[in-house]
């Protein structure tokens, strides 16, 4: 409404349509001027790169010479028959699920804890946030030593409390390696969601809680009926971040296990890296990258559509 009024009055003021056109052109120019820098960067480093990845994925190419052999979609056929790719996709799904089930609840719990009246809150706040501040490589190497089978901290702890039977080489064992790494990933990222939730909780109006108190609401009811519903948008955003992040995850795996032992911790991104830079298969590596992109895109679209429908229902 307000806009309409403004427009009407503007129309009254400007008598000539010529001036109006000139003004509009200027407006467009201003808009372009502001958008262009970001658009150029985005275009070159995202849109163009995605297109080029798809282009390279149709070739047999080592990545270090000028000898490209056109294969069409052969690389994609090869990919669908590649056991290691399916294994890595499975590991990625596992990471997505565990991240959703641990990082976000853990982040929420830590955020709620920070609002409870405990002494030394500032201390806990710093401690909780610490993992996120450390460099990934440092975390990786730290946990390599924690998980070490022969003199690792974890085995030492287990021994100290009489659980020698559980002692093992956590990242050297094909069955436990993926869980060990996933635990580290969750440890690293839970604080990130804690910060998001903390900010969101601060934004919930105090009046709602006061009203709830007057109505005689218990703590759990306050959480269930006020905090959680109002946090829903941020929980959904966090879930999307977590899912996408897990689908393209790379760094800790690369540092801690390199995808091993025997591909048991291979993720799509580490497999792509290995094919591209260790095996000199730039073409096949691009095929993996592009498939990763399509999978992440598909998942995002599904989540956004689901969210839209949910909002529509409300």
């Amino acid at each position: 409404m307000l806009e309409k009024v403004e427009k009407l009055s503007a129309q009254q003021v400007t008598t000539s349509t010529l001036i109006k056109k000139a003004k509009k052109r200027k407006e467009i120019l201003t808009i372009v001027g502001f958008i262009a820098p970001a658009l150029i960067v985005y275009g070159v480093y995202v849109v163009y790169s995605i297109f080029m990845t798809f282009y390279y994925s149709m070739f047999d190419w080592s990545g270090i010479d000028k000898n490209l052999v056109f294969l069409g979609l052969d690389n994609y056929i090869k990919l669908f028959q590649d056991d290691i790719f399916w294994k890595s996709l499975g590991n990625n799904s596992l990471l997505v699920i565990t991240s959703l089930l641990t990082q976000i609840p853990l982040g929420l719990i830590m955020a709620l804890l920070l609002f409870s009246p405990i002494r030394g809150m500032r201390f806990f706040r710093s401690i909780y946030f610490m993992p996120f501040l450390m460099s990934t490589v440092a975390i990786g190497i730290l946990f390599i030593f924690i998980y070490d089978g022969n003199f690792g901290l974890l085995n030492g702890l287990l021994g100290a409390i009489g659980l020698e039977s559980l002692q093992q080489a956590w990242i050297g064992n094909e069955q436990t390696a993926i869980w060990a790494v996933i635990a580290t990933v969750c440890w690293q990222f839970a604080p990130f969601y804690m910060i998001l939730f903390r900010a969101a909780i601060v934004g919930i109006p105090e009046e709602l809680y006061e009203a709830a108190d007057i109505d005689g609401a218990k703590k759990w009811q306050r959480f269930k009926n006020i905090t959680l519903p109002l946090l829903m948008p941020i929980i959904i955003t966090s879930s999307i971040l977590s899912i996408i992040g897990s689908l393209k995850y790379f760094d800790l795996i690369y540092v801690m296990t390199g995808g091993g032992p025997n591909n048991s911790t291979e993720l799509m991104a580490t497999y792509m890296y290995r094919q591209t830079f260790t095996n000199f298969n730039m073409g096949y590596g691009s095929t993996i990258s592009f498939s990763m992109f399509m999978i992440a895109l598909g998942v995002t679209v599904v989540i956004l559509l689901g969210d839209k429908r949910r909002r529509g229902e409300e």
Binding site: I141, Y147, N150, Q168, A169, A177, N262
Partner: peptide
């Protein structure tokens, strides 16, 4: 071989530590 050989990294010295510690 030590437990979990496939999880130990030469570059971070995990195998040499066992040698130095006379384990």
């Amino acid at each position: 071989f030590p437990d979990g050989v496939n999880g130990m990294n030469y570059d971070t010295g995990q195998s040499r530590q066992l040698l130095y510690a006379e384990k």
